[in-house]
């Protein structure tokens, strides 16, 4: 059985469901705009301090949007009792996990398509390819970890509480490296290439580790 076919089928199914129900993306997009609006009023922002404040707000918003996006990936399957049906097939649990992570990442990237221009609009920071690359690279690793912990906590009642507790500490490397990359892309001192290199290293490390762990998390 081709694992790529399975992963694509799972991702397509999740995206098709989201397209028809519009359950998550519009709500997340609204949350993003509101959070940026609050950030805009809460800080005294001018052209001098915007490059140092805006990246912080960007990562805060992204982290909370990510928690919601990834939290829903397995919670919806549990609520519909459809996860067991999926796992009862001969399809590899790793391929199923990859498909779920792919779909959740695609949804978060859609939200980022709102977040990055809105950030530029509210804070007057540059909207450059370097910022987009840094955010997309962080999304890969954050998606892998977020989906893994979403699969683990989907079985428990206090999942909304447990997901941030488990996920946030492991997202810190992405926030640190991503924060440095975005700050330097916005004109503050720092080495962009070094930070992006770190993001790539973290992506490889966590994608491999979560793929290995996914088999045990989903199979048992």
């Amino acid at each position: 059985m081709n694992p790529f076919r399975v992963a694509i089928a799972v991702a397509r199914k999740d995206l098709r469901s989201e397209w028809r129900t519009r359950e998550m993306v519009p709500a997340l997009a609204q949350f993003i705009v509101l959070a940026l609006l609050i950030g805009n009023f809460a800080f005294q922002i001018d052209f001098r301090n915007a490059p140092s404040i805006a990246p912080g707000i960007l990562w805060l918003v992204l982290v909370f949007a990510g928690l919601v996006a990834f939290g829903r990936t397995f919670a919806a399957e549990r609520e519909q009792s459809s996860l067991e049906a999926m796992l009862m097939t001969p399809a590899s649990p790793v391929a199923i996990f990859a498909g779920k992570a792919l779909a959740a990442s695609a949804l978060l990237i859609l939200c980022e398509a709102v977040l990055l221009p809105a950030l530029s609009l509210f804070f007057g920071t540059p909207f450059s390819a370097d910022v987009v690359i840094a955010v997309l690279l962080a999304t890969v690793g954050m998606a892998a970890l977020g989906c893994l912990f979403a699969a683990i906590v989907a079985r428990v009642r206090a999942r909304e509480l447990l997901l941030p507790l488990l996920t946030l500490p492991l997202w810190i490397p992405f926030i640190v490296a991503g924060g440095q990359a975005v700050q330097s892309a916005m004109g503050l001192p720092g080495r962009y290439d070094e930070a992006v290199g770190l993001l790539i290293d973290f992506d490889i490390l966590f994608v491999v580790l979560t793929s290995l762990a996914a088999r045990f998390v989903l199979d048992e």
């Binding site: 098709r16 129900t21 009792s81 067991e84 001969p90 399809a91």
Partner: peptide
């Protein structure tokens, strides 16, 4: 015990999805 279907997908799409998973 529970049907475990995808409510937003049609009956055919539900089965199509499992065709891919069952090969």
């Amino acid at each position: 015990h529970a049907p475990g279907l995808y409510p937003a997908l049609s009956a055919r799409e539900n089965i199509e999805f499992f065709c891919d998973l069952q090969d």
